Simulated scan of single mutants.
Amino acid sequence: MILCAGESLIDMVPSPTGFTPLPGGAVYNTAIALGRMAEPTAYLWPISTDPFGEALLAPLHTAGVETRLCPRTDRPTTLAFVTLTGTEARYSFYDEGSAGRLFAQSDLPVLPASTAALFIGGISLVPEPCGTTIETLAECAHALGIPVMIDPNIRPFFITEIPSYRARLDRLIALADLVKLSQDDIDWLWPDTPPEELMTSLLAKGPKAIFRTLGAAGAEVWWAGGCLSLPAQPVEVADTIGAGDTFNAGVLAALRQSGALGRRGAAPGQIALNETNLRAALTLGIKAAALTVSRSGANPPWADELARGQP
């Protein structure tokens, strides 16, 4: 199975009457997307016993995502108020003292023997103690030979301690096998750095592949064999909420299906990537993201929708 560990929250999405509460969170969305793709998936993050916590669990269960690893707590659920500029989403977070924010290392379970990959990222990497907890989990997975994928999915206004955050991200990139970066991430982290120079330097740190998403221009992957680019699928965009998260799910699903993720217990970094399985990963990631942006909110496609290729 693929284990997704990171934030879940309630997106307060603009509506004609104010805001509509919808389950969300970058890593949560990826878990939902993987489950809907019929991939064996588990989710790890503290879930509140408040009504919003129950609202978060229901879509996971409907998608077939395993939630037994999730600690339950009476602390409140994180809220994120969404504003849309055109079709682009921006977020304001209410997170202090929340269920996820206080995720502690003592809450970490033993990684199940069936874990084929660990996916982390989003705002769960930023504050404490949850940032350290997720980093510890990634270190454990790496030591066990479990491939790690990271998507920082940066929200600049949420990052108050920039040097500490950059240092953590450097450490996590060094132990990750797969890294996904949006152009917004790159512009914030490494402004004015030429793409080839940046990707070469990142690969030298340890990752085996760097995925770069370019919105309407498609996506690309850089690895030891060079760079592979594919165009976006033409689609009428409703909004971009959850697009990158769904792309991540497509990448992981395709790599697991091809056998590229290797086996637990292999030496760290023993992930079998080549042009064929990376092309399949890009293709499924782009296709899944296109279906997501064609409808409002974080609403990833189901396996039958992907098979049809229609929203």
Score class of each variant (00 low, 15 high):
222 W>L: 09
310 Q>N: 12
55 A>C: 06
74 D>R: 13
176 A>E: 10
86 G>R: 01
304 D>V: 11
239 D>C: 12
285 G>Q: 06
173 I>M: 14
2 I>V: 12
172 L>P: 01
212 R>D: 10
172 L>E: 07
23 P>M: 00
32 I>P: 00
184 D>A: 14
233 Q>E: 15
285 G>E: 11
171 R>H: 09
143 A>H: 11
111 L>D: 02
289 A>W: 00
301 P>N: 00
252 L>V: 03
112 P>I: 09
284 L>E: 13
20 T>A: 13
153 N>F: 01
43 Y>H: 10
286 I>E: 07
16 P>A: 11
215 G>F: 06
57 L>P: 01
158 F>D: 08
86 G>Y: 06
171 R>A: 12
81 F>C: 04
281 A>G: 07
88 E>D: 15
95 D>K: 12
196 E>L: 11
142 H>F: 14
271 I>N: 12
180 K>L: 08
175 L>E: 12
12 M>N: 04
179 V>A: 04
102 L>F: 12
289 A>E: 07
183 Q>Y: 09
153 N>I: 03
253 A>K: 14
248 N>S: 15
214 L>F: 04
182 S>T: 10
66 E>P: 01
284 L>S: 13
137 L>P: 08
121 G>F: 00
234 P>R: 07
200 T>R: 15
149 M>F: 04
287 K>A: 15
253 A>E: 13
280 A>D: 15
143 A>Y: 06
147 P>C: 08
49 T>R: 14
27 V>F: 04
49 T>K: 13
214 L>D: 09
56 L>K: 00
275 E>K: 12
260 A>K: 05
113 A>P: 10
239 D>G: 10
264 R>S: 08
241 I>S: 01
34 L>E: 07
81 F>G: 02
190 W>L: 08
235 V>F: 01
36 R>H: 08
196 E>D: 15
197 E>A: 15
287 K>R: 15
252 L>S: 01
33 A>R: 00
278 L>W: 04
126 V>G: 09
267 A>L: 14
27 V>H: 07
180 K>E: 10
271 I>A: 03
54 E>N: 12
132 T>R: 13
124 S>H: 04
123 I>N: 14
271 I>W: 02
283 T>Y: 08
195 P>I: 02
11 D>E: 10
187 D>G: 11
213 T>M: 03
132 T>Y: 08
17 T>R: 14
36 R>S: 05
155 R>W: 02
188 W>M: 11
230 L>A: 11
47 I>G: 03
256 R>S: 11
157 F>L: 13
62 T>A: 14
196 E>A: 15
201 S>T: 14
61 H>E: 15
291 L>W: 04
152 P>T: 09
106 S>E: 15
176 A>C: 07
69 L>E: 04
185 D>V: 06
218 G>F: 02
276 T>R: 13
13 V>C: 03
300 P>T: 03
138 A>W: 03
51 P>T: 10
177 D>S: 11
250 G>K: 06
36 R>Y: 04
